[in-house]
Computed example of a mutant assay.
Amino acid sequence: MNTIHYEKQGEVAYLYINKPEKRNAIDSTMSDLFLEYLEYFKNDSEARVLIITGKGDKAFCSGRDLKEAKENPEAFKKKPLRGRLFNAIIETYKPVISAINGVAVGAGCEIALASDIRLASKGSRLGMPEAKRGMGATFGATILPKLISPSFAAKMLYTGKLVSSKEAFQVGLVDEVLENQEQLLERATEIAHDICECAPLSVQRIKETIWKTMDVPLFQALQLDIGPNVYESEDRIEGAQAFLEKRKPVWKGQ
């Protein structure tokens, strides 16, 4: 099995970071594969939601493989994760759920931050220890203060300390905490199926609107027309008709 494993079950796709012997640390080859599968998911009209998780029971992703940075510094420099992997997760413009099963640190935490929904299993820990490694946490330092209390985000970033799944839930960093990994994936899949009940173009428009207006002043954001025009779509007509006929809509994505 590849170090990045991708599979699809119906309309739900799963991407597994699969290097448990290294706590799912990501090297350059893995980041390339990750990006390839994100592009595949983005262009697959049948895939509606992506769930990202880690193989094994200790780590979601322990960040960038620092051993590669020492042994192959050129690869490390030429393929930085920031601006590539995290942006690509956002720019799929389809919902992405991170099912955090264990530690999610550094780039692993940033993968979760780039996702739309974050679930964690009990005992998981999250954080960005870049300040302890002489690194910058550029993506994390940009996005984390927008998702949770800026002062709590600053404390996490300045100290590099990890927070428990319980504390992450309390500050809104994760949306739910599940008892174990089995329940974690079950719940992620359940949410994915709930999303699949909705119109694809509507979900895409909503995701684009969320991300593209995050830093835009309110009244300016309200004037923007972002994403596909759902108001003239076939699915808008189908949604209204299905509601009146008390049946499930049959979405075409157009």
Rank of each mutant, 00 (worst) to 15 (best):
M1P: 02
T3C: 07
I4N: 10
Y6K: 10
G10A: 15
E11S: 14
V12N: 11
Y14N: 14
I17K: 03
K22F: 09
K22G: 12
K22Y: 07
R23V: 04
A25F: 02
I26H: 00
L33H: 10
L38A: 06
L38F: 06
K42Y: 02
K42N: 13
K42T: 11
N43K: 14
A47F: 05
R48H: 13
V49E: 13
L50P: 01
L50R: 08
I51S: 11
T53A: 13
K55E: 14
G56Y: 04
F60M: 09
D65Q: 03
E68Q: 09
E74K: 04
A75P: 02
A75G: 05
A75S: 15
F76L: 03
K77R: 03
R82T: 15
G83H: 05
L85P: 04
L85M: 11
F86G: 00
F86Q: 08
A88Y: 01
P95W: 01
V96H: 01
G106C: 09
G106M: 02
I111E: 14
I111S: 00
A112G: 01
L113G: 01
L113S: 01
R118E: 02
A120G: 00
A120W: 11
S124Q: 05
M128Q: 04
P129W: 15
E130F: 03
K132L: 13
G134D: 06
G136W: 05
A137H: 06
A137F: 00
G140T: 04
G140R: 00
A141C: 04
A141P: 03
I143E: 12
L144Q: 01
P145I: 09
I148G: 13
S151I: 10
A153I: 11
K155D: 15
M156L: 12
V163N: 09
E167A: 12
A168N: 02
F169R: 10
F169T: 06
D175V: 06
V177Y: 04
V177I: 06
Q181N: 14
Q183M: 10
Q183A: 11
L185F: 00
L185K: 02
E186D: 07
A188L: 11
A188G: 14
T189H: 13
A192N: 10
A192Y: 05
H193N: 14
D194F: 07
C196K: 02
C196I: 05
E197D: 11
A199I: 00
V203F: 03
K207Y: 04
T209I: 04
I210F: 13
I210H: 09
I210R: 12
W211R: 11
W211I: 08
D215S: 08
F219Y: 12
F219M: 14
Q220C: 03
Q220V: 13
Q220L: 09
L224C: 07
I226M: 08
N229W: 02
Y231R: 08
E232G: 15
S233Q: 13
D235W: 00
I237K: 00
I237R: 00
Q241F: 01
A242C: 08
A242S: 12
F243I: 03
E245Y: 02
R247S: 01
W251F: 01
K252N: 15
Q254A: 13
